[in-house]
């Protein structure tokens, strides 16, 4: 759709999905594109369903939620169950195989990765960002890495090892 890509990052509260959504958006802005991130979550800090919609576009972005996502990341069974049945044939679904049991129905466009094999729990979201970046191709690897370096250098809560986790996730796709 004329240079517009929508990505959904879904899971449960506390997994760092809003954080990686913001990194995707910021990396896109670094590349001179328009981006927006809208998040839906409950009042609880952890544990309930949450999703972040990232839209990256060369044009002005109108509606702020994803309607036809090109890629969906599911870090919880609830997220998978919600998106797997309704995704279009062109969309890619990426899931954490440690937490999600796939239905098998969408096998051709669904890929599972064990996040625990790629990163420790504190940086698993960054590994997931690596997967999304590689599989969607929506931003360049180096743009995300630049944002990560900037964020870890500042007072943000991003941990050391974030960039390594991101790189590992990115590299896992081409293996």
């Amino acid at each position: 759709m004329n240079g517009k890509t929508e990505i959904v990052l879904a899971g449960v509260g506390g997994q760092g999905l809003v954080t990686i959504g913001a990194i995707l958006g910021e990396a896109a802005v670094l590349e001179g594109r328009n981006a927006c991130l809208s998040s839906s979550y409950g009042t609880e800090a952890r544990g309930t369903f949450t999703k972040s919609d990232v839209i990256i576009s060369d044009d002005e972005i109108d509606f702020i939620e994803a309607e036809e996502p090109a890629a969906v990341l599911c870090l919880a069974q609830a997220a998978y169950d919600r998106y797997s049945p309704v995704l279009g044939p062109e969309a890619v679904l990426i899931y954490d195989s440690d937490r999600v049991t796939p239905s098998g129905k969408g096998a051709s466009r669904e890929t599972g990765y064990s996040l625990s094999a790629l990163a420790d729990p504190g940086t698993a979201n960054l590994a997931a960002l690596g997967l999304v970046t590689a599989l969607s191709g929506v931003i360049r690897e180096e743009s995300a890495a630049e944002v990560l370096r900037k964020k870890t250098a500042s007072s943000s809560p991003l941990r050391k090892g974030s960039e390594e986790a991101f790189r590992k996730g990115f590299a896992a796709v081409s293996l």
Partner: peptide, 9 residues
């Protein structure tokens, strides 16, 4: 809440 929590450029 939608616009205030929204992040964009």
């Amino acid at each position: 809440a939608a616009v205030a929590k929204l992040k964009e450029n």
